[in-house]
Design a protein around this nucleic acid. Structure first.
Lengths: 146, 146
DNA sequence: CCAATTTCAATTGCGTACGATTTAATTTAC
DNA sequence: GTAAATTAAATCGTACGCAATTGAAATTGG
């Protein structure tokens, strides 16, 4: 039985999958009142950091292609979070911009998430450690996949 | 600016989401020749461990509801991996069983994954550490979500 | 300057995820 | 023994993810 090496990888992959789904479900509790999904929240996070980004720039940060972003952004436009307009300089690029609602809701949405996160009671040091180790794993996987 | 506490949670959630998607993409490379998806592979893993399980038992192990499993298992039945039959003792339960192909393919599928995993070159100690920390996080999140 | 290449967003198709509801079968309680 | 509660799978609807292709716009090379 020399399956031991990949058994560990199996367990870790499933563990990541599981943790990711649970974490997102946890976030959804805070986002549901706003009618936002987790991937939509990620778009808002990116735009709060820097508004007026072309679609492909958002895609690079979140690792989404246009096949995922185009319909997602249309939904966000319909709900009044963002606007979508062609760049005047380059008609291939679609510039994504926050609406007034998208900008001002930041405080309220953060507050809703903060309430949930505060209940989690995980040692911040454990968070930091997990985060650091994840970065290494992500870098390794990214290297394997190009 | 007291957003610091949730910024860490934001980063960790995204990091898990990212790692999970990359890890699954990595596994898909090995699974694609067999026409298997990662969630379908998880079902096979569970059945290789213990064959002839009812749908809800698989759901408990993988944290999937019947809304996810029913169509997934039908696809696996169509491709000849498993059979679906009602339990004679309890007509509500659907017993999932490996086909001959499902049973015997284990070696070949494991071999394909092993080849990919071996290229990863991650320190097994780091794996173990990540896994242990993930378990703690998962337990915490599960506790928060019931 | 203009044909070939590259870069974008959109589209197509398939397979999850998951909240919510429905329907059928079994248990439970009186 | 049967009505009520519970359990199980299936169904419905919405929203991702992502491989693959398409089509339009810009860039580049000769």
């Amino acid at each position: 039985m020399e399956d031991s090496d990949m058994t560990l990888a199996n367990q870790l992959c499933f563990s990541m999958y599981r943790a990711s789904r649970l974490f997102i479900k946890f976030y959804q509790q805070a986002l549901q009142p706003f009618g936002l999904t987790y991937p939509q929240y990620l778009v808002l996070l990116a735009l709060w950091e820097e508004d007026r980004q072309p679609l492909h720039a958002l895609g690079e940060q979140l690792d989404f292609g246009s096949n995922t972003l185009t319909p997602l952004l249309k939904r966000m436009e319909n709900k009044g979070w963002i606007t979508r307009e062609l760049a005047s300089s380059d008609h291939r690029q679609l510039i994504i911009q926050l609406t007034e609602t998208g900008r001002t809701s930041k405080t309220e949405i953060f507050q809703s998430i903060r309430i949930c996160v505060r209940q989690q009671a995980i040692d911040p040091a454990d968070y930091q450690d997990l985060l650091a180790r994840n970065h290494i794993l992500i870098a390794t996987l990214e290297k394997m996949l190009d």
